[in-house]
Structures are given as C-alpha cells and as structure tokens.
Amino acid sequence: MAQAQGFNIGLILGPIEVGVVVASCLFGCAVVQTYVYYKRFLKDNWKIKALVNHPTALQIPHLLCVVATMWTMSTTHYGEPQTLNYLPDSTVAAVILSAPITFPVHAFFVYRLYRLAEDRILPAICLLMAFVRLAFNLTLGITGIQMRNSIEYEQHWSWMITAVLVTTAACDLTIAGALCYHLGAKRQVGIKR
C-alpha cells in the first residue's frame, strides 16, 4: 500500500499536508495585511483598494481548493492508493486560480518599478516574465482538466511546471532587487518618501 503505480504515498500526501498548513498561515497573514491596509490608508484611490482586495478575495477559493485536495487525497480516498494517480477537480481549480492571483500583483510591482527606474528595459522584462507565467499557469490548468492521470500529466508537462516555478522566482527576485536598488538610490538623492 506504500506505492501506488509509481507514487510513493508519503512523498505525495506529506508535502500536500505541510503545504496546506503553510498556505493557511500565509492566508491569515494576507488577511491581516489587508485589514491593516484598509484601516491605515482610507484615502487611497479605489483602484488601489480594489487591487489590494482582488488577490485576497481570490485566495479564499484557492485555499478551499487546496484544502479540498488534501481532504480528497488523504481522507476520502484513504486506503485507495490507486486514486493518487488522478488529479482531483479541486487541484485543477487551484492551479487555474493561482494565475489571476499572481499576475495583478506582479503587474502592480512592475508598474512601481517602471515609475522608479530610469531604464524601461528591466520593467519590460519583468512584465514579459509575468505574462509568460500567466500563460503557462493557465495552460497547465486547462490541460489538467483534459488530462486527469497525474503521472502522464507530470511526464508531459514537467518542463512547463518547472518553467512556471523558475519564471515566478525570477520575476519576484528581479522586481524585489530592482525596487530595493532604486528606492535606495532615491533615498541617497534626498527623496525620503
């Protein structure tokens, strides 16, 4: 029972359960940050407020999908290791939901970088990475609807899964590094705000 047609159950269910706990904690942090934002910045433009609300609102169904995936894999199908070969609907929904959560956040910070940077090439590269991540993420979600066998899915799309993870990390690190650099440079010039 420890193996299910190429799957080690411990290597599948363990990370899912740890991931759900971490995701729940991070969701709690996001809710607190959203609450603090709305309390402190009452006069912000409604567009910025909507942009803050958008990811938080979408993270609720995303977290529910992740919890449903864990429940399905560890409780509903307990003792049926062969079911680990098939992606639950909630997994596919979570993959699809992560695209509209991440893209507006990347786009907002790229816009901030665009406003701070003298050079327009780096913001353009970051925006391109954000678009690539969005397209790949949606592709993975849509193909997950059609291809339900998780072993075949991983074998066929492993390059794109890796590309999504690498592109996301590269985009995040590039934006964060560039913003830190430009904000530090502006402070030295005398702009403190």
Rank of each mutant, 00 (worst) to 15 (best):
K192W: 09
A2Q: 07
T83A: 02
Y153E: 02
G190L: 11
H54L: 15
T72F: 01
I9W: 10
V20M: 00
L140K: 04
D119S: 07
I191P: 05
P100S: 05
W159G: 03
L128V: 12
M160F: 09
Q59K: 14
T167C: 07
I12K: 01
N85M: 06
F136W: 04
I48Y: 12
P55V: 12
L42N: 12
I16T: 10
P123Y: 07
H77K: 14
L13V: 01
N8F: 03
V32T: 01
H156F: 08
N85P: 04
R112V: 07
W157A: 13
P81T: 04
L26F: 12
Q188H: 14
L13E: 08
A57T: 13
Q155G: 10
V110P: 01
T168R: 09
T168N: 06
L26W: 12
S98H: 07
F109H: 04
L140P: 05
D89K: 02
W157I: 12
A107R: 07
P123G: 11
E152I: 11
R193A: 13
Y38L: 13
G6Q: 08
K47C: 13
V36Q: 05
I175Q: 11
K43I: 11
T162P: 02
S98I: 11
Y35P: 00
Q33G: 02
T162A: 15
Y111F: 14
G19K: 07
S158L: 13
Y114E: 03
E17T: 03
K192N: 15
I145N: 10
I151T: 12
T102Y: 02
R187A: 08
A30H: 12
A169D: 14
E17V: 09
H182T: 09
R40H: 11
D44Y: 05
A93M: 08
R120Y: 02
G177A: 10
A93S: 13
I191W: 12
T76A: 01
F136R: 00
H182S: 08
M160R: 08
A163K: 03
A50R: 04
V20Q: 08
N8R: 03
L134C: 09
A178I: 04
A99N: 07
Y78K: 12
V92F: 06
V166Q: 04
C126G: 02
Y181K: 05
R133L: 05
V189I: 05
Y35D: 00
K49R: 15
T34N: 09
S90L: 00
A99F: 08
T34Q: 10
M160P: 08
A68G: 06
Q188C: 00
V66M: 11
T56V: 13
T139M: 11
S150Y: 00
